[in-house]
Design a protein around this nucleic acid. Sequence first.
DNA 1: AACCGGAACTAAAGCGCTTTAGTAGATGAG
DNA 2: CTCATCTACTAAAGCGCTTTAGTTCCGGTT
Lengths: 366, 366
Amino acid sequence: MGPTEPRVTIEDVAARAGVSATAVSFVLNERSGVGTVARSRIRKALAELKWSPSARARALASRKAFAIGLVLSRPAILLSSDLFFARFIAGVESVLSQRGYSLMLRVVGEDAQAEVEGYQWLAAQGRVDGFLLLDLRVEDPRFALLERLAVPALAVGLPAGRCPYPWLAIDDRPPMRRLVEHLVGLGHRHIAHVTGRAGFVHTASRRAAWRAVLEEAGLPPGPEQTGDFTAYGGAAATKRLLQSDALAHAIVYANDAMALGGMQTLREAGLRVPDDVSVTGFDDVPLGAYAQPPLTTVTQDVEAWGHAAATGLLAALGGASIESGRVGQADLLLRGSTSAPPADGTRSHPIPATRPGTGPATRGER
Amino acid sequence: MGPTEPRVTIEDVAARAGVSATAVSFVLNERSGVGTVARSRIRKALAELKWSPSARARALASRKAFAIGLVLSRPAILLSSDLFFARFIAGVESVLSQRGYSLMLRVVGEDAQAEVEGYQWLAAQGRVDGFLLLDLRVEDPRFALLERLAVPALAVGLPAGRCPYPWLAIDDRPPMRRLVEHLVGLGHRHIAHVTGRAGFVHTASRRAAWRAVLEEAGLPPGPEQTGDFTAYGGAAATKRLLQSDALAHAIVYANDAMALGGMQTLREAGLRVPDDVSVTGFDDVPLGAYAQPPLTTVTQDVEAWGHAAATGLLAALGGASIESGRVGQADLLLRGSTSAPPADGTRSHPIPATRPGTGPATRGER
DNA sequence: AACCGGAACTAAAGCGCTTTAGTAGATGAG
DNA sequence: CTCATCTACTAAAGCGCTTTAGTTCCGGTT
């Protein structure tokens, strides 16, 4: 690979500018103690040599990694079922890149032990200065873990219960309420809910918002099925809903993927959306706009969320005491999957439930 | 945050084991020169102190970052329109985590300048030992850039033209050919193609495969529209196809997102899939199975690809000369969106094209 | 008996920065 | 004029590892 040319170091820059390495370091880190003359000469030398400091040496000397960690414990299928991660990370990066930080990603699947090790490994080796905690769970074990490891962190979401770390979140309850209120306003009295995967705070908060609106509107508590945020899970939950004798002319899904899976199941059962059943999602996945009918859902400013989260974590790393709170905003996207309930508002499903296990047909060919 | 307890260092481990730090380092790095007795005492001390080496010090001393970089220049919308990234990264991580490496992610959007800086920054600061190059372009400017920076890399995909780096890819041409051959076998004679975003090698290779099969089958070259891998782009390309007077009873889309967007457009134009038009995708996004009709597509073993890519890059970093080639496998998923062409095989579209700009209706509410 | 080669082990010198502790010189107060 | 104070600047000591260059010891050769 050719002879290893000696790296340009801070000493070279200092020599060129006719000052000490300390002075260069001071300029680099924007510390005072360097006169204007020396400062500009150093700047010049920096530019001329195109030098950038070795992150390795910097990390060792300053006891900082200049990186933050993101450990993803979702199964792959959930990772990109929506734009959430891409958009969130884009928001995070917009902050990190201009602050000289970088993002260490760790994907650990669903194994709880692997998740613990993921955090421990990054923390123990000092590869990151702090963590962004995504997909908060109701009794989130990571809080205790990270406290034990004595690592800073910021929770991304509305913590349920005690949270030793600051948090920032787009509150999903108001838009969820407005979604359900919209259905109520259309005349719906039997509104079901397909929840997200158990244990996550956004599963709980969306469900709670749905229940609260029904209650406040004086409506009977609607039927409920547990989903898992996947299209498959949404389809399965919808089948269970159809098989039960519960009445529902609207189904509020905890996210778009499930809603789209559910819509297919309803279609297979001979039900029309929205004529027989109204359907709502949450997330605004791109394909929701191209579903038949287009899916009524909620869109959130996820980039802003990521931006705020990164800003907050860096501030916390800098010793600032940052204030937890809501960020960004969420808007309803009223599209074609919702309408008034069928005229005979009290009748049950016009068609009996489909047989379970009947997914979309797939023939595999080698 | 309490008094900063002094970090456990390699010296502490050495002292506990009654040996020198050098010996501990040797054991850690699996170098010879440590007797079995000393070795086991060191192992014991390691475990007792629960020590893990400081990645920072290790990186500085050994001139290695123990990290590889992934720079994503896709716009966010493309990042998670499919499971590709999540699955690929999961495959990569399965290798990195057990080899003590980590993944530095950089998301730079679509700005070419930002992309260059992304690579430069990670390389110049020595934050990574090498790069995985995703989304290869036809004349990929990153090859020259990285050569200039003298950084190892591995191309993930089939390079078009000169490639100074080893590459590993799932060849998408054979499955694409089989897809088109399947349509030909069903009796289709007018097969259109909606391409991916211009400039990417997988856009070119999929298009080439489609053309080759038509040619070999003695069929007229089908109409073609440029897409961009998004549902919106697929819908737009489909509208242009409908507006042109070209004949097509099957449309081969370069990916699922476009196919699903296209199917909605066809539906809006009053065309039935697959009765009037057959549709195929590529990627096997989860929602494709829940579309109406379920989408015929291609599924790839993306995890295996990620696994192979990471293994290959680490090998290259270790000085091995690794062999470029094909990895993983791709399978056809024949579902409901393809069937024999309409009986009157020569007639044009039964319905005139939709008016342009007519996307799915969306009312925004604050 | 002298010699050699190899294995086991270690002291010490970095890696390229940051930070501490200090010097020199300018400025202002008394 | 002296002393204290402040600013500009630097030498040198780390940060916690890896690696180099030895040293010691041992068994096998001649």
